[in-house]
Amino acid sequence: MAGRLRDLGVEAETRTGEASELLEAWRGADHVVLVDAVETGAPAGTVWRWEGWQINFPTRRSTSTHGLGLSEAITLARVLDRLPHRLRIYGIEGRQFEPGTEVSPEVKLAVEEVVRQITME
């Protein structure tokens, strides 16, 4: 997706999703769009859209043994006053997350749809 966006003249990067890297990646940026795969139980290819200032994550003790992800990045950014002025998050519902599996046709279509929406912003 990042490659598709760059072809269309949008500044885009691929990141691991690790929280501290995300905080650094968007440092100083005013308008940031994040795209990630999600699993909510909806049909594959469903596109979700949230705003950074209003998204809330389920309260839980963060007990990761190995890393902090997107939800921690956004919550930590709020605490450290590092949330971009405008942060939009697109979630694309996936179906298979096992290593080596192909991207499903539904997800490929959703990627194109999200690319279209981002370029219109």
């Binding site: 839980r60 963060s62 007990t63 990761s64 043994t65 190995h66 890393g67 992800g69 997350f97």
Partner: peptide, 10 residues
């Protein structure tokens, strides 16, 4: 521990 890089939390 790297319990699993696919595992985000416990």
């Amino acid at each position: 521990p790297c319990i699993s890089c696919a595992t985000h939390f416990l």
